[in-house]
Design a protein around this nucleic acid. Sequence first.
DNA 1: TTGAAAGCGCTACCAA
DNA 2: TTGGTAGCGCTTTCAA
Lengths: 379, 379
Amino acid sequence: MRVPLPKNAGPEMRARSDAQPARDGHRDYSFAMPTEQARPATIIDVARRAGVAISSASAALNGRPGVSETTRERIRSAAAELGYMPSLRGRSMVAKRTFSVGLVVQRDFDVIESDPFFGAFIGGIEETLSQRDYALSLQIAQDETAMIQRHLDLVNSQRVDGIFLNEIQVHDPRVDLLLERRIPSVGTNPDPDFPFPAVRQDATPGIRQLVTQLAQLGHQHIAHISGDPRFIHTHQRIRAWKDAMAQVGLPANMIITSDFTAHGGEAATTQVLDLTPRPTAIFCANDLTAIGLINGLQAAGLQLPNDMSIAGFDGIHIGSYIRPSLTTIQTSPRAIGREAARLLLEIIDGTTPPDVAIQPGALLNRASVTPRRTTITAT
Amino acid sequence: MRVPLPKNAGPEMRARSDAQPARDGHRDYSFAMPTEQARPATIIDVARRAGVAISSASAALNGRPGVSETTRERIRSAAAELGYMPSLRGRSMVAKRTFSVGLVVQRDFDVIESDPFFGAFIGGIEETLSQRDYALSLQIAQDETAMIQRHLDLVNSQRVDGIFLNEIQVHDPRVDLLLERRIPSVGTNPDPDFPFPAVRQDATPGIRQLVTQLAQLGHQHIAHISGDPRFIHTHQRIRAWKDAMAQVGLPANMIITSDFTAHGGEAATTQVLDLTPRPTAIFCANDLTAIGLINGLQAAGLQLPNDMSIAGFDGIHIGSYIRPSLTTIQTSPRAIGREAARLLLEIIDGTTPPDVAIQPGALLNRASVTPRRTTITAT
DNA sequence: TTGAAAGCGCTACCAA
DNA sequence: TTGGTAGCGCTTTCAA
């Protein structure tokens, strides 16, 4: 896989980096310091240059009272000349904060590419954090064991001041851990009894809108392809679908379990075609599932949307580029991320902010949903 | 947008967080400490509990010599009983490291969702970092100004030990900055004269493969829709395309500038249709562009792939779910991320590792490329 | 208004 | 083999 280029290959071909033993989380710093960096100016340098005490420099630069305006100005210019900026390490030490928050995404490295929620959610988080000089520490875990371990490490080593709980599971082991350690945390779309502040975007209205419309279009057999039952939001969407079906007087008895991936949606094709009576419309738990299913159905020879109406959930960009373009429910991952970060920072600041509800996602009509074909009706 | 839920809304409705003034990067810590957390055990607690000196505890836990096996064991169990784990803050202070590395992605918050490189690249980075107790500090900048600022902040506040330079620009202002400050950095697919160690995946072989095949299929008018000219990899792909065209004896004179987005690809439709002679095949700078173009062409009434062959670059997952499924060149963002992180950690450790070349991406044939239609030939 | 000094948690050095 | 201590960069407290 890797082919070292000749370029820098010199006699210093490093010995296999055995400078870092440690199996138990402890490290050895006996190795040489990192490549000679230009030593950044410290507050001591500033104080010396301005001819004042360190404490005065600190007070002056932080806008604290107790420094005359003239000395403050002298200190300021000394700092400017030295290009001084306080070291986060020093601040962290005394503030007992790291000024960063953590997000652990549990996803297979190979699947993460195609996950659109991810990017927008993080974008929203950053939107808030960047205004507060906080940084996001992002971790990716392959499986559940690794995910718990990453949270443990995050908490134990005090690497972050707070944690985002996304894609919450039915009995989420992270919650107890964070609760017990009293780690500031915020959840997205959790159950009602969630112990931390949370940001929610209700799936119910959008799904009701969709199901109502499908019923109005003449569909009577509407199936649901659900997501991984491990997650809370899987059940939230199932429930919303069932409620909506009941509301329009249709039986909600056709449900197929999948896993939120395009591959899973494609794999569900056979089960969909085996359903009796064959549904004329399918509500998929997310857009990727819908995209996979559309592919599978087309490969099986169905003409979409005429032979079957398909709807997704999420409103990812790519949905408008497939054929038929995907009818879906538009969610707001960016807004969720933005608000979640805002709440988390408030919790870190010691307050207990109220939950936030994001405007529910609305139905986004495109081409994959059409009236039920009357020809098929005559079964 | 946000509707506070009644749930926790109590009298403590926080005053608008004015505890954090600061315009100039300095902070005020006079506010109350974060919500009472269970104070984590420190090494002092461990030493006291084991009845030894702090230095002995440190030596014992870090596997340093100079501690008898019995006391080492006593210290170990004391640490275990207390659930002790060294604080990253303390370690950072003395090690002069933060044990995290930085990546700043410049992307509009709204566009980031659909960027597939992003996720896989980060997945690869994490793959390496997680083995070394390093964390990734991810930042997102909306525009170039913000991106430079984030790098400056990262460097000045010493928030990270090293930085990834991705999507390198033609005259990338970050390079000088990082070079001057001697910040450990690693680049992905930079120019040959790039001053830091780099990971490269050559685009040339895949593009040559594609162009050769197109020529063999009878295509004589092959256009290229390029990416944002600001980026190095845009020019790398243009050059590879030109070289490949020359090699098969075709003129490389039809090039349309776009921006790597699906929207941009769609917008390029008119220009493509206006080209004379009309090309029978298009090589797009990336898959998203190709997907957008395919949509635009279909909307304009073309039958794909018969009326025009389209190829992309990247090999994103979703390419197999559009119609016609996308012929592309499969790149390896995850491997690039993995190797880039490996290099970066080596640089941080003080070595100067040789560049790494990833196996070039190969042509991935799907349905969007077909032989030139002879009917169209007779123009 | 200014300055000296303690202390955050840890590692490293040196003396006992 | 042990323990005491300096010091990383910063904020904060207390005296001058």
